[in-house]
Amino acid sequence: MSASANKFNKIAKGKTPPPFSLRLTFEERAALEKAANGTPLGAYIRARLFDRELPKVRRRGAQPVADHAALAKVLAALGGSRLSSNLNQMARAVHTGSLPVTPDTESDLKAACADIAAMRRALIEALGLDGGGP
């Protein structure tokens, strides 16, 4: 092995080799990305260059919404309500100490919490997500 080749092969223990850059035209990169089909380009190039198996890539669906009708229902309910404005007013009243805690106020707060929880469940269902909580 020549001295110049030897100096490129020496890497100090614990250090990773410096990255290798490759300039591509817009068309070349677009072709690579199309061929990679969602696989990270570095992994795809390495697999092709060294004749390796392509790594499995976990992909989200192109359309993550599982139920468009349920999502539309929830968004319509949110848009038609003054929920955020009302919650903001209640928070301001709590901070200033001007929110009287009566049985009616308490039942209204519990109803608002139940409505928000129902909207959360509907959004999670519409997006096809795992609830992962209450």
Results as ranks from 00 to 15, higher is better:
Arg120Ala: 05
Arg82Val: 07
Lys73Val: 00
Met90Cys: 10
Pro100Tyr: 00
His95Met: 00
Ala36Trp: 05
Ile124Arg: 13
Thr105Tyr: 01
Ala30Ile: 01
Glu106Asp: 13
Pro100Arg: 01
Leu75Val: 02
Pro64Tyr: 01
Asn37His: 04
Ser4Phe: 08
Thr16Cys: 05
Glu125Met: 03
Glu53Ile: 05
Gly61Pro: 04
Leu83Cys: 06
Ile45Glu: 12
Ala70Phe: 03
Ser21Gln: 06
Gln63Phe: 03
Thr39Gly: 06
Ile116Met: 10
Asp115Val: 05
Ala35Glu: 15
Lys73Ala: 13
Gly14Cys: 07
Gly42His: 11
Arg58Ile: 09
Glu28Asp: 14
Asn37Trp: 00
Leu75His: 01
Thr105Pro: 02
Ala69Thr: 14
Leu87Asn: 14
Ser84Thr: 10
Pro134Val: 06
Gly132Phe: 02
Arg48Tyr: 01
Asn6Met: 06
Ala47Leu: 09
Leu78Tyr: 07
Ala30Ser: 12
Gln89Thr: 11
Arg46Asn: 11
Ser4Tyr: 04
Gln63Asp: 14
Pro64Ala: 01
Met1Phe: 09
Arg46Leu: 05
Met119Thr: 09
Asn86Gly: 03
Glu27Leu: 08
Gly80Ser: 06
Arg60Ala: 05
Arg23Ala: 05
Pro19Thr: 13
Ala93Arg: 11
Arg52Tyr: 12
Lys15Arg: 15
